[in-house]
């Protein structure tokens, strides 16, 4: 009988979906002209993604019980 494929947790799937959504919003041309405090939205969102993604990944990894 075939073995089961690897599985991902809801948290891991949520993290990947969140990163994809943030990147999609940041890189969509529709928001090219949007600025916050004089800085383009794309820069704000990408800087935020750069820090938020590892924070999310770290929380998931620390909560994991595997070894």
């Amino acid at each position: 009988m075939s073995r089961a494929m690897p599985t991902a947790t809801r948290g891991e799937i949520g993290l990947l979906v969140g990163i994809t959504a943030l990147a999609a919003v940041a890189l969509t041309p529709l928001f090219d002209d949007v600025e916050i405090a004089g800085v383009a939205l794309i820069a704000w969102l990408l800087w935020f993604t750069m820090v938020a993604a590892p924070v999310g990944g770290l929380i998931l990894a620390l909560r994991s019980k595997e070894d």
């Binding site: 991902a8 993290l15 990947l16 993604t49 993604a53 990944g57």
Partner: peptide, 9 residues
């Protein structure tokens, strides 16, 4: 940094 998180998952 996003790539490292993707790799970790």
């Amino acid at each position: 940094p996003v790539g490292f998180v993707v790799a970790s998952v």
